[in-house]
C-alpha cells in the first residue's frame, strides 16, 4: 500500500470524536475503522475485528493544542 497515492485524506471533522487516540483508517481513506488510547490497544482492537494491521493507515489524533519543539528530543 502506498499511503501517498491514496485518495484525499478524511476531513478534519472526521477526527473530532477521536481526540487523544490512535486511529486506524481504512486503506481507501474513507473511514476510521478502529480507535484506542494506545497503539498497542489499537492493534488488539484491529485483531478483534479481523482487520489486518498492515492494510490500514495508522494515525494519532492530538488531544490538545500542542506547540511542538524538537528541543525536547535532543
Amino acid at each position: 500500500m502506498n499511503p501517498k497515492t491514496l485518495p484525499t485524506p478524511l476531513p478534519e471533522e472526521a477526527y473530532a470524536a477521536y481526540r487523544g487516540k490512535w486511529v486506524a483508517i481504512s486503506a481507501d481513506r474513507t473511514k476510521i475503522i478502529a480507535a484506542a488510547d494506545g497503539l498497542d490497544a489499537l492493534e488488539d482492537r484491529l485483531a478483534a475485528i479481523g482487520q489486518d494491521p498492515e492494510k490500514v493507515i495508522l494515525d494519532r489524533v492530538e488531544d490538545e493544542d500542542t506547540l511542538l519543539g524538537g528541543a525536547e528530543l535532543l
Binding site: M1, P3, E54, I57, L58, D59, G69, G70, L73, L74
Partner: peptide
C-alpha cells in the same frame, strides 16, 4: 510493516524515534 499517515520531519531531533509498540508487532 505498518503504515503511518503522518511522521514528522524534525531536524532538531538527533534520532529517528518510533513507538515501542511496534517492536513486537
Amino acid at each position: 510493516s505498518r503504515h503511518f499517515q503522518r511522521a514528522l520531519l524534525d531536524p532538531g531531533a538527533d534520532d529517528t524515534v518510533l513507538p515501542m509498540a511496534l517492536v513486537p508487532r
